[in-house]
Design a binder for these strands. Sequence first.
DNA 1: ACAAAAGTGTTGACCGTACACCCATGT
DNA 2: ACATGGGTGTACGGTCAACACTTTTGT
Lengths: 230, 230
Amino acid sequence: MTYNHPKILVAIDCLVFGYDTTENNLKVLLFQREVEPFAGEWSLIGGFVNEDEDLSDGAERVLEKFTGLKDVFLEQLSTFGKANRDPGGRVVSILYWSLIKLDDLHRDIANEHGAKWFDLDQLPELVVDHSEMLKLGTEQLVHNAKSRPIGFELLPEDFTLPQLKQLYDAIYGKSIDDRNFRKKILSTDLLIKTDKKDKTTSKKGAFVYRFDTEKYNELRKQGYHLDLNV
Amino acid sequence: MTYNHPKILVAIDCLVFGYDTTENNLKVLLFQREVEPFAGEWSLIGGFVNEDEDLSDGAERVLEKFTGLKDVFLEQLSTFGKANRDPGGRVVSILYWSLIKLDDLHRDIANEHGAKWFDLDQLPELVVDHSEMLKLGTEQLVHNAKSRPIGFELLPEDFTLPQLKQLYDAIYGKSIDDRNFRKKILSTDLLIKTDKKDKTTSKKGAFVYRFDTEKYNELRKQGYHLDLNV
DNA sequence: ACAAAAGTGTTGACCGTACACCCATGT
DNA sequence: ACATGGGTGTACGGTCAACACTTTTGT
């Protein structure tokens, strides 16, 4: 070790949004802390960074522990580092956020770890500065929904346009005009229409679409930047 | 101390953009590292976080040390934390960025600390992942120039429209249409025209303007969001 | 008088928004 | 036949981009 300076505990907190396609609402994964201070209180999922571990690997480890998921949308958001933010000691915490397709499996795995999915409008009090983290993440979600195709991280691979619209409605907290939404989303030319119909929510049935990930990645390499402007 | 986990060195690096009004170009503040590894090589200004110090206070301390400035634009950008990023030991580094009005005083203070202002197109090799930090900060600058009035952080309090346009040209790396630029910037109604003229660059002289900070803050409280769309 | 920078308006193309009805099908 | 959700087009207004000439004044 070359440097001679005070060392600090480094933690990762991970804000996980899951979308429940059947209920049509956005949820957040929280867990009950097991250690003092604040044992038993609700917090974002998190953990300490190991000495030989990349931050991004630590975030993946935390996420996989509580959801069983790998290779999903997971990005760094911001770092929280007030000297006295945690009464248990000096901890600098790096906030990540993740978007997942919520299904029963993830509910079960969450359960095993004392974690639970909460509706955004029925959140409990959160420890330390986690409410601030949640606020930041929610803003990020709204902001990103306009500029990147993050909606498809939250929906199953096969989805219908009414489903996609409901997701955007949930994110923005208001109802978008149906015709304009279709026009905009289809004009990106990044949706693949299949000939299947999903009849679970109507007699007529809604066509099933898929997001064209390859095409999007190809375009992105060429500097393309999606702007949904919904 | 309640927690029992490995502790890690936490550093702050600060990417400082300065705009030189006389030369009309953007510069970045770099300094020559004094300690091994990489002693003598160029790096962003930075330092280690003290145990009882808020991250934001640490960033302010670093910035003041090298520029003599307080109370200027200074925001957190991102955190770099690959386990082996620094061969001198495990260091997690939080990147901040700052915008300042560059004048001779700041050049002198920088000099005292072995720091120097570099043109963006004449940068030396940088240590560790600092080139990545610079890239991120440059993108941030371009992106923010469109959505927030950051230009005024880089110009003196009194400025002319030709100066402001040259600044935006420098940020975007291309020349904006003069008439459209004036229309847009004046339509925000956030510039105060004074009756002074600056004749240093022309015989006719250009009117001196000021940014209406109070009005902007007032509007912002009401949820207003500037969108320059230059 | 002339050089050099400051200042000024109009038009056409495109995009966002508002808005109401028909379609397909299971019961 | 009817109820339910899926699907479709148009017209208006506002915003962005392109474009060239006049004004001022120091030398």
